[in-house]
C-alpha cells in the first residue's frame, strides 16, 4: 500500500494495538519527517477547501471539459442565429404591415398562411423536391403497421406532404389490413405501394435506411423497396375533408 514500506523496515517495538494505538498515533512527536507530513496535510486541507469552494461557485461549467464547452457554445450560436433569422423575418412582416394601409400585405400574409395550413392539412396539391418510395409486395406480406411505420418515419424526417398511392396522408390518416391490400382512410390500396413525400430527400432517405428501420423491416418481411430522390415532383391527391 501507499505509505507502507517493506515489513523489515518495521521498528523493533510494535506500537500498541486498537484504541491505544490510536492514542499513540496522536502523541506529538517533533521530527522533521513529522513536520513535513504535517505540512503536506496542511496543503491537502487547503486544497480540499479551495476545490470545494470553487465547485460551489459554479457547478455547471467549471467541471465541463473543453470539447463539451465547445459543443454548448456552438449549440447556442446556432440557436441564436436561427432566432435572429426569425426576428428579421418578423420585423420585415411588421414593417410591411405598418406601411400597408390598404390591408394588401395583411391579405397576402393571410393567404400565405392559408396555403401553409392547406398543405399541412392536405387540402391543397403540392409540388417540390422529395422522394418516391416504391414498395413492391409480391408475397402480400406487408401489413398496415409497416405502412404506418413508413409514414411516421417520413413525418419524423421532415416530410411536409405525403401521398400513399392515391391517398393524401393527413393528421388523421389510418391504415387497416384488408383483403387484397391495405385500407387507408376508407380506400383500398393495392400493392405496389407508392409513397410520395415532399421534404429534404437526403434526410428522408437516410431516415428510411437506418439499420432496423423501415426499409430493413419491409425487406425482412419479403417486400422490395426502392427509393428515388426527385428534385421536383407533384403531389396531386387532396383530402376532401
Amino acid at each position: 500500500m501507499t505509505a507502507a514500506p517493506e515489513p523489515d523496515d518495521a521498528p523493533a517495538e510494535r506500537p500498541p494495538r486498537g484504541f491505544a494505538g490510536l492514542i499513540d498515533l496522536l502523541r506529538p512527536r517533533t521530527t522533521w519527517g513529522q513536520l513535513a507530513g504535517g505540512l503536506l496535510c496542511l496543503v491537502l486541507g487547503f486544497a480540499v477547501v479551495a476545490q470545494v469552494q470553487s465547485n460551489k461557485r459554479d457547478t455547471t461549467f467549471a467541471t465541463a471539459r473543453q470539447d463539451e464547452l465547445v459543443g454548448v457554445l456552438s449549440d447556442l450560436g446556432q440557436r441564436s442565429e436561427r432566432l435572429r433569422g426569425d426576428l428579421r423575418e418578423l420585423e420585415d412582416t411588421k414593417g410591411d404591415l405598418e406601411r400597408d394601409v390598404q390591408g394588401e400585405t395583411a391579405l397576402e400574409e393571410a393567404r400565405k398562411r392559408a396555403t401553409t395550413y392547406g398543405l399541412l392539412a392536405g387540402t391543397l396539391p403540392a409540388e417540390g423536391p422529395g422522394i418516391e418510395m416504391l414498395v413492391t409486395d409480391p408475397r402480400t406480406a406487408v401489413r398496415s403497421v409497416n405502412l404506418l411505420d413508413g409514414l411516421q418515419e417520413l413525418r419524423d424526417s421532415g416530410a411536409e406532404v405525403i401521398q400513399v398511392n392515391d391517398v393524401r396522408a393527413g393528421a388523421g390518416t389510418y391504415f387497416l389490413d384488408a383483403a387484397g391490400g391495405i385500407e387507408a382512410d376508407g380506400r383500398l390500396l393495392r400493392p405496389p405501394y407508392r409513397f410520395l413525400a415532399i421534404g429534404d430527400p437526403h434526410t428522408m432517405t437516410t431516415a428510411l435506411n437506418i439499420p432496423g428501420g423501415v426499409v430493413r423491416t419491409l425487406e425482412a418481411a419479403g417486400a422490395a423497396v426502392s427509393i428515388t430522390p426527385r428534385t421536383r415532383m407533384a403531389v396531386s391527391a387532396i383530402r376532401s375533408r
Binding site: 505509505a3 507502507a4 514500506p5 523496515d9
Partner: peptide, 20 residues
C-alpha cells in the same frame, strides 16, 4: 496517501520518508 499513512502507522511500519 494519507489513509495509507494512518494504516502503516497502526501496523507499526510507518516511515516519515516513505509517507512524504
Amino acid at each position: 496517501a494519507m489513509f495509507g499513512g494512518v494504516r502503516a502507522r497502526l501496523e507499526g511500519i510507518f516511515d516519515e520518508k516513505v509517507f512524504v
